[in-house]
Amino acid sequence: MKIIKPKATAAALEPDMTPMIDMTFQLIAFFMVLLNFGEAEQDARIRLPSSQLAKPPETALENALVVQLTGDNQVLFSGELMPIAGLDEKLRREARFITLSGEKPEDATVILRADAESKTGVVQEVIQKCQENGFENFALRAKQEDEES
């Protein structure tokens, strides 16, 4: 007995992909817009103290270098973890680089991202090391959050 295959219609074989592609492009656009390369210096090891006055600056700081301090009082600079003693050489190199580029270290800003649990004395030591290398402007970074009363 001969079985006759039913002819498949074109409509049954081709599902409508348009809504899925639309949705996927919308998702891509969403994640692309939210991807913030500027916050690359944020490190998960640092838990910043919170302050209700900490508002993001309206304009990006010029000549800024980021010094981070972990909760166990280690310095994180240019992705490298080091004790405070190791920071001196790095800062000297940065100051030299700024001078060579025609700027002054006094005009540069050191963004200090210190962990909420780090010792204040160590933060002061970091500031002192920066001062010894000619840096005068500091930005103590805090996360924007309502303080718990």
């Binding site: 998702l27 891509i28 994640f31 692309m32 939210l34 991807l35 913030n36 916050e39 944020q42 910043l48 302050s51 006055l53 900490a54 508002k55 993001p56 600056p57 700081l61 800003t109 963004i111 500031i127 001062q131 005068e136 402007n137 500091f138 930005a139 103590l140 970074r141 805090a142 996360k143 924007q144 959050e145």
Partner: peptide, 18 residues
Amino acid sequence: FLFSFKIVTQEGDFNIRM
């Protein structure tokens, strides 16, 4: 983009001149 995405909290500065 899904894996690159991370939720970041807004950060602000206290500027001090020392």
